[in-house]
Nucleic acid binder design. Structure first.
Lengths: 210, 210
DNA sequence: AATATTAAACCGACAGCCGGTCGGTAATAG
DNA sequence: CTATTACCGACCGGCTGTCGGTTTAATATT
């Protein structure tokens, strides 16, 4: 039996299936047939809406990044919180992902998902570090921190968290703790802040953490 | 006509071809047939020496990283040079690669080479940042810089150079210059050095640079 | 209201390539 | 002469992407 839907709706169905499958099996080991079966459509239909498997990935990332940057923008704008907390909150939210994206962001770091990882990281790097930079500038204005290069500090920070911290569970507890305090100390230096001020800003986060 | 060679020799022939092809076309778009033709062997022969395409990639990276870390170790040990110069020298040598590797390290950042890029980066991160960390510690001892977390600073630094600086030519000249000075300034802060001291250490490098 | 038109959505067989296997063959060392 | 090592190439299943044809549904026409 043949069911006809609006293009936009079908596209989203396909992206839903893709997101689920890419998240569990990874991009490479998900075949277009897997997607076909999941959605319940024929081969031609898939390629009527998307012209390649990679285009599906790109569209999926687009959609996902849209949601994530929206979330990030929201967090960054919560003026009732101190800047530092907003900063760390935003960063961790980005690398951990929301509720929906959690699955993907966890599977992303396996070698088979290298392409997906790189695309997402590039996207986050260009779309979201400006947000972080703005938070840092706000910190500058408030006299909390001081740097002439907010954008670059944001890039450096986010990049480090997103690559090294993602494999954090592979280390032992001691090593992990060391990495975290090292990172905070480094961030304090980059932002020319008093030693220990980052710890304070971060501690509230770990109350409800993983 | 059938020519028989020692396993080790054939393996190296295959790795040579693979390195050339992966470097120019990328890993994904290089088929095993391409390698077969380049070496001039049959399908079975390839899979007699390597049990999968990915194993070829891994072996190639192994060989390449061996050469690069050797080079890095050599640079890091040049005691006649000041520590800071050795540090920057080593970092740039790693991301730019040697003479042979130059081709690969340039092609690596295309999206299709994501897997290769990630594998190389992980390898460099684990194998080479300890070298950088040791240089930093030496700087500590000499009183040139001061940090309690040499390893983490090394990781952060190297990671940033290797991801952001690689696409440096995509920016305009002004932006590029800004990125570089920003990076140096940030590094100075991480290492708690006097402002401007990095500039001095780096300037000699740009005399003979790209 | 019934019918013709048209364009969008859909189908599934098929082509071509790819990575990997396997049984057999030639070369070489002992 | 024998055993091992290196090599061959036909073959297989699975994959992505193509294409001509078909159904559906909205719109125009009578």
């Amino acid at each position: 039996m043949r069911t006809v839907k609006e293009a936009e709706e079908r596209k989203n169905e396909i992206l839903d299936a893709a997101e689920r499958l890419f998240g569990t099996k990874g991009y490479d080991s998900t075949s277009t047939n897997d997607i076909l079966d999941a959605v319940g459509i024929a081969r031609g239909t898939l390629y009527y809406h998307f012209k390649s498997k990679e285009e599906i990935l790109d569209a999926m990332i687009d959609r996902m990044m849209g949601e994530m940057t929206a979330k990030a923008r929201e967090l960054a704008a919560r003026r009732e919180l101190p800047v530092l907390q907003r900063l760390t909150l935003t960063i961790t939210a980005l690398s951990a992902g929301g509720e929906q994206q959690h699955e993907i962001m966890e599977q992303i770091h396996r070698p088979q998902n290298a392409l997906m990882h790189q695309k997402i990281q590039n996207r986050l790097l260009t779309d979201v570090t400006p947000l972080l930079a703005e938070l840092i500038e706000e910190g500058n204005r408030q006299g909390i921190c001081q740097t002439d290069y907010p954008a670059e500090v944001a890039e450096m920070t986010f990049l480090y968290v997103n690559t090294v911290f993602d494999d954090l569970m592979e280390y032992g507890e001691a090593e992990r703790q060391r990495k975290i305090t090292a990172f905070l100390c480094n961030l304090e230096r980059l932002l020319r802040m008093e030693a220990g001020s980052m710890q304070e800003a971060v501690l509230p986060l770990f109350g409800k953490a993983r």
